[in-house]
Each structure stands twice: as C-alpha cells, then as structure tokens.
C-alpha cells in the first residue's frame, strides 16, 4: 500500500481543473509472470472518489484496464484558491488511500 497521491488543482475563470497521480500496480489478473508462468493476481483500483470541500464531484469506477500508476484529470464549476480537494481510492484487495490538497 505504500505510495502516495499527488494532486494539483487550479482555479481559473470560475472553473477548477484537477490533475491527480496515484501510485498503484494496477494488475489486471490476466497477465502471466514471465519467469514462473503463473497468473499475476488481480490488484487494481476499483473506485476513486473526488471531493471539493464536502461535495462529491466525481466518482470513477475502474477496471484493471487503467494504466499502472493511474492519472486522472477532471474539471468542475466553482472552487476558489484554498478550498480543499480530496481524493480517495479503494482497490480490489480492500486497500485504500486518501489525500487532500488545497486549490492553488
């Protein structure tokens, strides 16, 4: 579970754009280990919840088809410098991580 989430949020012209990078292997469960020939068990983020203050702006449901160390960018109306942006992910093994960053 070690890793971190990087969030960058900028407010401009009444809109806020958020860019986030997560650290996760995103194993599909379909890939074989080249050395052992055994299938690598699935381990990927299933759900990402993005909040602005207490409001949920975006919920992403993912499969293992999202690339390793996932990138997510989205936009929303409103937001001002200093407002908190929160991102939480959950994975298929019950792992979770949350990060909060202020809008620039």
């Amino acid at each position: 579970m070690a890793g971190n989430i990087k969030i960058r949020a900028k407010a401009q012209g009444g809109e806020t754009s958020v860019k986030a990078l997560m650290t996760h292997p995103m194993e599909t469960g379909l890939r074989k280990d080249k050395k052992t020939g055994e299938i690598v068990p699935a381990h990927f983020i299933t759900e990402v919840t993005c909040k602005w203050k207490d409001e949920v702006v975006l919920t992403a449901l993912w499969s293992g088809g999202v690339s390793q160390n996932p990138y997510l960018a989205y936009k929303f109306k409103g937001g001002a410098a200093g407002d908190p942006i929160e991102l939480t992910w959950l994975d298929n093994k019950g792992g979770t991580e949350t990060a909060i960053e202020k809008i620039e």
């Binding site: 809109e15 949920v56 992403a60 993912w62 690339s67 990138y71 960018a73 989205y74």
Partner: peptide
C-alpha cells in the same frame, strides 16, 4: 472506466488506459 459526474462536474475527464 465509468465516471459518475456530480452536480458541479464539467463533462471532461482524462486518464491513461491499457
């Protein structure tokens, strides 16, 4: 992926896929 947009969200999402 399936993105559920909240009331404030603008329909614009980016990610990287396999």
């Amino acid at each position: 992926a399936s993105f559920n947009l909240g009331a404030a969200a603008i329909p614009s999402v980016s990610t990287r896929i396999k």
